[in-house]
Structure formats: C-alpha cells, structure tokens
Amino acid sequence: MLKLETVHSHYGQIHALKGISLSVQAGNICCLIGANGAGKSTTLMCISGIKNISSGSIEFEGRTIHTLSPEKIVGLGIVQVPEGRRIFPYLTVQENLMMGAYRCADKAKVYETLEKYFDIFPILKDRNKQMGGTLSGGEQQMLAIARALMGSPRLLLLDEPSLGLAPLVVENIMNIIRQIKSEGLTILLVEQNAQAALELADYGYVIETGEVVLEDAAADLLQNARVKEAYLGEG
C-alpha cells in the first residue's frame, strides 16, 4: 500500500534519513521503533509531505506522492496524528473534529461521521463545546485520533500516541488502535514504547540514526535478542 524507497532527508547540514526503505501492507499495523532522534517522526513528516525528501521515492498504491502538497496527500487518504497530539488549543472539541474533515464537502456525511466518533469516544461528546486545550493528555490523544479519523483515511500515521500518558491510559489508547484496525484501516505506528507497539503490530522496523537496521514480523522482533536488549529493557 505504502512504499518508501531509499528515502533521504536533510535538516540543513544534518542528514536525518539515510536511505530509509520500508513498505506497509494493506490492512496491517506496521510499526517503526527506535530511540529519540532516530528519524521516526521525520519519516512520517516526509510521507505527509510536510518535510521534503532529498532523494528516493515514496509511493502510495503505486502513485508517487513525495512531490505532492500535504493537502493532496490527505486527499489521497493518508492522515497523520502528529507527535504531541497538537490539538488546536483555542478551537472547541467539535471544531477540532470538523477541521479533520476539512476536505469533505458533503456536510451530511461529516455530521454522520461526527456522530459515529462521538459514540466511540463519548468523552468527546461530553466536552464538545470545550476548548481543545482544556482537555487532559489522554482526552487530547483521543481527540487527535478521532480528528484524523474524521478525514476517513485509508492509511493512518500515528506518531507516539503513548507519549506522556499514564500506563492505564496507554492501554486504553492501544485498545482504540486495535479497534480501528479491526475496521480495516491500515496503520503506520511510530512508538518509543516498543513493547506496546510490537504487541499490537503485524510487522516492525527498527530505525537507528536514520537507517533501518532491522525488520521482521512483530512477533519475531519481540523475541529478537538485539531488540530485547536495546528496546525492551531485557536481556
């Protein structure tokens, strides 16, 4: 479904991605794990068209997308939940959600989708008139996910959904991701919490300093000695 071929990217002199190649299969959860600064978020920003790539290619369903603008990429069905949630703090919960459906011209359908996610996340319905910035971290993460889903994506990019959340809330978020997957959505998940990510994912890539150093089925990565030592705190 999504394919990155030796993608390079720079921030000025800094060579952030050094030839990342990966692919995401339709209907799967694929995860990228790695330490802080390894290039995971940069990879997602390149896919979303926010960050320019220096060389290589990104294809979505056989179509080259790295030359497209961010809004066109969203139009193709790739929506990102950015790191740190990035809720619009001075928009209400409902306005935040409506922004997720910005490209959908069919108002009736938008409200239908809105009701659907209010059912899935009742807390958002309770707080729909509240400013996004007043929500707690976990609620903001739910809002960020629901906002992205409002755009009816086919590929969801999730950047560190567990960041800064209490363990119980993390579990809740992971269950939501599982539920989304069961509805047939393809997910590319970036996580520092390797344990939680690999338990959820079908396939995984390990990224270190801008390169893919390891890739395998998620279940196998969980058993991999190197992964255990570096990312799971075992061994």
Partner: peptide, 11 residues
C-alpha cells in the same frame, strides 16, 4: 494556532 497540523488535516 498550528500551521503544520492544519496542513496535516488537509487544509
């Protein structure tokens, strides 16, 4: 409030 996220929403 947030240009990058706005672009990510398809605005």
């Amino acid at each position: 409030q947030d240009k990058v996220t706005s672009a990510l929403m398809g605005i």
